[in-house]
Computed example of a mutant assay.
Amino acid sequence: MSVRLKLGFVPLVDAAALIVAQEAGFFADEGLEVELSREVSWATIRDKVAFGALDAAHMLAPMVLAQTLGVGSERAAMVAPLTLAMDASAVTVSTRLGVEADPSGRALAALVARRRELEASRLTFSVVFPFSTHNYLLRRWMAEAGVDPDRDVRLTIAPPPRMAELLAGGVIEGFCAGEPWNAVAVAAGVGTIAAHAAEIAPGAPDKVLGVTAAWAGANPATLDALVRALVRALAWAQAPENRRSLAALLSGPDYLGLSPEIVAAGLRTVAFGAPRPAPEQAAWLLAQMRRWGQVQGDDAAARVVYRPDLYARALGIA
């Protein structure tokens, strides 16, 4: 008898594990009957998991920490038994700015300085969620170039699929988001990728599998089966010989709804090959959250939320 689950995702290439596990039958092999639910925003994902409308979801790596700490939302103890992707995002700037690929951020800093001298309005950039690796990557990229992200520019929040549209419309001048939405902006001729995540903070965790601690405790065998299916899917997605097939699969109308060519462009830098949820990664995220005034205190959340022991249990690793 199969176990029925409803899993949420936001249309991004780093949702690949959920989509591959569904389409390749890896969930079914583990006795899981899964419904995938494409969600419109990260806040929707967060709330639906917390209140049980979703059993688990593709979630922002820092979101599960914030939720457990009760910052930005009602407190809900979460666990992350699996890392779904790293290096899956980029900073894209409007072609109107005339800034080329610039991992150092110096060209942006020069532009900001000129606008300050002219007393021009601040440039507006968007990130996908306050508690997101994208927020911390964009801030780090700016800060290391001498730009104060809280004073020298204006930061707003927007869902990933809207970023290219907002850039084209002149509502924002840049963004940091997951792929393939950077590739979409480039293909439309409205954006230039200034820096990839791997050029700003290599190996920074991007997305995790998120479940409530209560659900994990009540459903250990189901969680183990879910982790096993997703680990198998991650290995398939990471294999170079599968990247073309992966792009075609993700491009489907129920998933990303984009051309395989654009999806393939967005997949070039994404790493699926490190699924163990490392508390060291959580500690890095908490350090960023402290740096930018979102949380205070020690790294206890890193130990209770990022759970390599659950990953090891599912795979039978001693």
Results as ranks from 00 to 15, higher is better:
residue 297 G to F: 15
residue 302 A to T: 05
residue 207 K to S: 15
residue 300 A to M: 00
residue 154 R to C: 04
residue 203 G to R: 11
residue 298 D to A: 10
residue 207 K to C: 15
residue 241 E to D: 11
residue 116 R to H: 06
residue 142 M to D: 04
residue 72 G to F: 11
residue 179 E to K: 05
residue 160 P to I: 02
residue 310 L to H: 09
residue 230 L to H: 05
residue 54 L to V: 12
residue 234 L to E: 01
residue 57 A to K: 04
residue 46 R to D: 14
residue 305 V to E: 02
residue 177 A to G: 10
residue 91 V to R: 09
residue 205 P to A: 15
residue 33 E to T: 13
residue 270 V to F: 05
residue 298 D to C: 08
residue 55 D to W: 07
residue 279 P to V: 14
residue 137 L to A: 03
residue 252 G to L: 09
residue 209 L to A: 02
residue 46 R to W: 13
residue 63 M to F: 03
residue 190 V to C: 11
residue 227 V to F: 10
residue 208 V to S: 00
residue 11 P to Q: 06
residue 233 A to W: 04
residue 241 E to I: 09
residue 11 P to N: 01
residue 151 R to W: 01
residue 151 R to P: 03
residue 120 A to T: 10
residue 293 G to C: 07
residue 32 L to D: 02
residue 156 T to N: 11
residue 62 P to E: 09
residue 235 A to H: 10
residue 16 A to Y: 07
residue 279 P to D: 04
residue 47 D to K: 12
residue 286 L to T: 07
residue 22 Q to Y: 06
residue 99 V to A: 11
residue 21 A to P: 04
residue 246 L to K: 14
residue 300 A to Q: 04
residue 122 R to C: 13
residue 149 P to N: 14
residue 1 M to K: 05
residue 289 M to N: 07
residue 273 G to S: 13
residue 294 Q to I: 06
residue 240 P to K: 12
residue 277 P to N: 02
residue 167 L to C: 07
residue 34 V to G: 00
residue 316 G to E: 08
residue 180 P to D: 15
residue 68 T to G: 07
residue 301 A to G: 01
residue 267 L to T: 08
residue 112 V to Q: 00
residue 109 A to K: 06
residue 27 F to V: 00
residue 227 V to Y: 03
residue 221 A to D: 15
residue 2 S to E: 12
residue 234 L to I: 01
residue 82 L to E: 00
residue 53 A to C: 00
residue 69 L to M: 05
residue 187 A to G: 08
residue 226 L to S: 03
residue 163 M to N: 04
residue 167 L to H: 12
residue 316 G to L: 09
residue 101 A to Q: 11
residue 4 R to C: 08
residue 67 Q to W: 09
residue 175 F to M: 11
residue 129 F to G: 05
residue 70 G to M: 09
residue 77 A to E: 14
residue 200 I to Q: 03
residue 210 G to N: 04
residue 110 A to T: 12
residue 90 A to W: 00
residue 140 R to T: 13
residue 202 P to S: 10
residue 130 P to W: 12
residue 105 G to F: 12
residue 251 S to C: 10
residue 155 L to C: 13
residue 112 V to D: 02
residue 200 I to W: 01
residue 305 V to G: 04
residue 106 R to Q: 08
residue 116 R to F: 00
residue 268 R to N: 03
residue 29 D to A: 15
residue 177 A to V: 03
residue 137 L to C: 04
residue 185 A to S: 12
residue 126 S to P: 03
residue 234 L to W: 01
residue 303 R to I: 02
residue 108 L to R: 02
residue 130 P to A: 08
residue 232 R to D: 11
residue 127 V to M: 15
residue 71 V to Y: 13
residue 48 K to G: 01
residue 198 A to Y: 13
residue 172 I to D: 03
residue 149 P to C: 13
residue 247 A to W: 09
residue 14 D to N: 10
residue 286 L to E: 10
residue 11 P to K: 05
residue 148 D to R: 14
residue 94 S to T: 06
residue 117 E to V: 07
residue 147 V to A: 07
residue 174 G to C: 00
residue 103 P to K: 13
residue 72 G to R: 02
residue 173 E to D: 14
residue 234 L to N: 09
residue 183 A to K: 08
residue 281 Q to D: 09
residue 207 K to H: 14
residue 49 V to G: 12
